[in-house]
Every structure is written in C-alpha cells, then in structure tokens.
C-alpha cells in the first residue's frame, strides 16, 4: 500500500515540475495531449487490462464527451463545468445501458460489437450536420474558466488537464487495489471461479464499462475546451486502435503503463514528423511485434529484458570463475 503511495507521489511530483524543465508552447501543447491520451488509455485499461473486456469503440465516448461539451456550452450557452458534468453522467449512463447487452458478448464478438458501436457514433458526428457541423467540424468552443482564471494558454491548460489526469490516476490506482479491482482481475483470470466466490461478473463488467466511458467523456470535454474546435476524424476507428495500442504497449493492467504508452505514442509521431505517412505502418508493426514478443507491455517487458541481460552476464561471469 505504502509502495503505491510513494509511486503516486513521485509521479505527481514529476508532472507538477515538468514545466520547469520542458518549456515552450509547442512542447506544452504536446504534453497537454499526452495528458488527454493518458486519461483515455487509463480508462480503456481499467476495462481491458483489469476486467479483460476489449473495446474497439472507445473513441466514441471520447467524441461524445467532446461534442456534448462543445455543443452544450456553445450552441446552448451552458456553463462549461456544468456541461462537462452532465455530459459525463449522461455518457456514463448510456454506456451502462448499452453495457448489459454488449458485455454479454465475449472475445471477438465483443470486439466487433464495440467496433460497430464506435462506427455508428462516428457516422452520426459526420451526418448530423445541423448539430455537429458535419465533416467540417464544430468551432468556437469557449475555454474553461475558474473564477478570474481563464485556461487559454498552453501552460494553464497543462495544469488543467494534468490535474484531471492525476485525479483519474489516483482513483484508478485506488480502485485497482481494492476488492472491486481484485474482482475485475479475478473475472479476467477465471470467470466461473470468480462467480462462485460471489463476484457478480455481469454487473461489474457493466460498471467498469460505464466508468471507463465516463472518464473518456471527461477527457473529451477537456479536449473540446482546450482545442476550442472538434471534428469527426479525432474520434474515428483509428483513434480507438491508437488507444488500444497505447494500452498494449504500456502493459495491460498497469495504470502507469498506460501513461507510458500514451507518452510514447503521442511523442513519437511528433519526433517522427518527417516520416508522416509511415506512422500507420509503425502502429501496425508495433502492435504485432509487442503482442508476439512482449505481451506484458513495456512495464513488464523492460524489467524482464533487463533481468535476462544481467542474468546472461552473471552466467558468463560464473563460467569465468
């Protein structure tokens, strides 16, 4: 327990102090996206890494949050904070309702169903032009305000987004180390045995699905207010796959791994700007290589690799002596 607390404190400290080391609007802006992606990846990881249920439609919840917040606060002049709260609750409720039929499905079927759901939502973003602005997007979304403070610069947005991320990570770590988190992992490992122990697998899966959707919706709201503009391509199937890649690369069932995955997959394309079109090839290759050679993700794979290398050295040393 104490170990978890220290890990979290170090993580939070790094986040808070990062702007002292990294500066410049461009980098701050990229780090804002790392934050939003971390929230999304952590949300998906709760579902996929802990409860073992795949979703290929999580970009839809992200998009619903973004469009919901954008439309309510712009077209209908709602207070943005109120809009964010209402949208998060509505998306969570929606996911809860759809969760019952959808999570009855397993494995490949679940993947296909969530994928279908994601595409339907994406099509609605594109086609419901009167409300969403259609393919050309929805603009003029106001920045968030807190009293006299307007979140209109990259540095301010950095602290805005990352305070949400820190909250989200803390809650997720708490949850993961509680009876509920254990029940998720039990469902993942041996569902029938978990049910025999009194774990209501069906309800818990739906609950985590709803929670995960809710976190995505909040990330979406933040995204809308930070960008002040949203358009359908940010919420398509490719984004769902990108999220999946982050979770898999970081490590299934590791909250900090999701941060690592989000960091890597957000920074890399920025550094690899010159090979712009190659990024899709890169994602595909990365997904395959990771699944085959490092199924535990970086958080488990790197230490394993390290152990192997040092193990080899020791063996060699032993042979010498």
């Amino acid at each position: 327990m104490k170990k978890e607390l220290i890990k979290y404190a170090v993580f939070a400290l790094c986040i808070l102090l990062a702007p002292l080391v990294f500066s410049g609007n461009y980098l701050m802006n990229v780090l804002v996206f790392v934050g939003i992606h971390t929230m999304l990846a952590v949300a998906l990881n709760l579902l996929l890494g802990y409860a073992g249920q795949i979703s290929l439609g999580h970009a839809a919840f992200f998009g619903l949050g973004a469009y919901g917040s954008g439309i309510l606060s712009t077209t209908y002049n709602w207070n943005p904070w109120l809009a964010m709260t209402v949208v998060a609750l509505v998306v969570g409720g929606l996911a809860f309702a759809i969760g019952f039929p959808i999570l009855k499905l397993k494995g490949h079927y679940l993947a296909m169903a969530t994928l279908g759901m994601g595409i339907i939502v994406y099509i609605v973003f594109n086609e419901w032009v009167a409300i969403t602005g259609g393919p050309s997007g929805f603009s003029g979304i106001p920045n968030l305000e807190l009293g006299p403070l307007v979140f209109d610069s990259d540095l301010k947005n950095y602290y805005l987004v990352w305070s949400f991320v820190l909250g989200c990570v803390l809650l997720s770590v708490n949850l993961a180390n509680s009876r509920i988190g254990r029940a998720f992992r039990a469902i993942h490992d041996a569902e029938v045995a978990a049910r025999v122990m009194g774990v209501n697998a069906r309800l818990l899966k739906v609950q985590v699905f709803a929670l995960s959707a809710m976190i995505c919706a909040i990330a979406g709201s933040l995204y809308a207010h930070v960008m002040t503009f949203v358009a359908p391509p940010s919420f398509g199937f490719n984004i769902s796959v990108e999220l999946l890649t982050m979770v898999v690369i970081g490590g299934l069932g590791s909250i900090y791994g999701s941060f690592l995955g989000a960091l890597l997959l957000t920074l890399l394309p920025e550094f690899l700007r010159f090979m712009h079109d190659y990024d899709i090839v890169f994602y595909g290759g990365l997904l395959m290589v990771m699944t085959i050679f490092m199924p535990g993700g970086l958080v488990r794979g790197i230490p394993d690799l390290f152990r192997k290398i040092t193990g080899l050295k020791n063996k060699k040393g032993g042979a010498h002596a």
């Binding site: 254990r182 992992r185 039990a186 993942h188 490992d189 041996a190 029938v192 045995a193 978990a194 069932g253």
Partner: peptide, 10 residues
C-alpha cells in the same frame, strides 16, 4: 474445481 481454477495472475 477438479482442475483447480485459481486467479493465476494474482
């Protein structure tokens, strides 16, 4: 269970 069903990753 006959073939012990443990939660292996825990």
């Amino acid at each position: 269970f006959q073939n012990i069903e443990l939660f292996g990753q825990m």
